[in-house]
Simulated scan of single mutants.
Amino acid sequence: MFFDMHADVWTDNFWEYKKGNKDVIRNKYKERFLKGGLSGGIFVIYLNANEVENPEEYFFADLRAMTEELHYARDLIKIIKEPSDFKMMEKSLDEKNKKFGVVLGIEGLPGIGNKLDYLYLLYQLGVRHIGMTWNETNAFATGQSGDKNRGLTPLGIDAVKIINELGILLDVSHANDKTFWNIVKHSKKPFFASHSNARSLCPAMRNLTDDQILCIGEHGGMVGMNSYHNFVSQNESEKNLEMLLNHLEYVANKIGLDKVGFGLDFAEYYTPEGEEVSGLSGLHDVTELRNVEKALKNRGYSLNEIEMVTYKNFIDFFGRVRNFK
């Protein structure tokens, strides 16, 4: 089994809906998921607020497309809301009755403007993951493209409190460094970086510093490895699966193998039609997921260790957040 902690599936779904195509999971992705051995993932809604005229209008149109697609795919998708929901992944190993376990996620909050009460609405719709920002500056937080001296706003601090109270997973990927440390200060529950690598191995700002990695581990969080090639290495010859596993081992050596996983951020979900999909050598898209297990076996990892990093660690983390007292 494999759980991908970051997949922009709802982005491509929205694009397909705008073209009049529906039942997208079945018609476009089911066979690809099965080929790769995907059991589920955090499927997120993301928008680049700098590229749309009305972020709120765009966001809620995307949200409506997601909920309609969940109706069409009700025999294919189990929405994960509680730790017990993960049991379905073990029960649906045969392809004939396969259901994918999906955590509904929101990558960045510009789509709700400055309206805190929308967090409750999203929760009631089944959302169990939120990242405060996708690189942009919004009413709540500051992303990697924003002012490095700006972090969480007072409204953002209130949002963190609500996210904690609701037991929603709080994601620090895409937050700038100041926002990260503000979240550390104000979050009372474990948080995670769903799709970020180690900045020491690849100096992209989207990656985590050693201090950030250690902090996530100390707070009971976890880190998901991102397969986006420019976050894996700046050296063309190292933009491959083996280098991604070097990131995994680097982070695991700091915070433990039980606190790492994969948030692969495959470009196939957010690459506009007609453009070439960029991918990592050996792990280009979801159909090549099985290469991860093979590569880990070649490195001497046991079956239990492979299961830990491919899905068990995330299930444990989800339970830590949902059951946190």
Rank of each mutant, 00 (worst) to 15 (best):
V24H: 04
I163Q: 02
L244D: 03
A204V: 09
Q124I: 04
H129Y: 12
G151L: 10
T153W: 00
Y118K: 08
C215E: 15
D210V: 06
P83D: 09
H6V: 06
G111L: 07
E268P: 00
E165K: 14
K178A: 05
I130C: 04
K259A: 13
N253T: 07
D4L: 01
Q124T: 07
L119F: 03
W10A: 05
L125Y: 00
L63S: 01
S237C: 09
K22T: 14
V251Y: 01
G101Y: 00
L63Q: 02
I80S: 12
R32S: 10
K178S: 05
E268I: 01
Q234D: 10
N48Y: 11
M5D: 08
L283H: 13
G101F: 00
L248M: 12
L289T: 01
M205F: 09
V103Y: 00
N48S: 06
I216K: 02
G41N: 13
L119D: 02
M205Y: 11
G41K: 09
N226A: 05
E53F: 05
H195D: 02
E307V: 03
L296T: 02
L166Q: 13
K254R: 13
G113P: 04
A198Q: 07
N182E: 08
F324A: 13
M5C: 14
F192M: 15
E242I: 03
W134Q: 00
D94N: 14
K178V: 06
N313I: 12
M1C: 09
D23W: 10
I163A: 03
A295T: 03
Y123P: 02
V277A: 05
P55K: 07
S194I: 13
L34C: 09
L34R: 12
T137I: 04
N226Q: 05
E136Y: 06
K35C: 05
Y17V: 06
G113R: 14
L34Y: 09
G131E: 02
E90M: 12
S233N: 08
D265S: 11
E288K: 14
A204I: 09
G217P: 07
S302C: 05
P154W: 05
Y118S: 03
I162E: 02
A267T: 12
G167A: 07
C215G: 04
L119E: 01
E107Y: 07
M243T: 13
G37W: 01
Y118G: 01
I157G: 09
N21C: 14
S92E: 08
L208C: 10
K87L: 15
T137M: 03
V52L: 12
N149S: 14
D316E: 04
D177E: 15
S173M: 08
G263M: 04
E288C: 09
H195K: 02
E218S: 15
F59N: 09
R320P: 14
S281H: 12
E16H: 10
K96S: 13
G143D: 12
I77F: 03
T209I: 07
K87I: 14
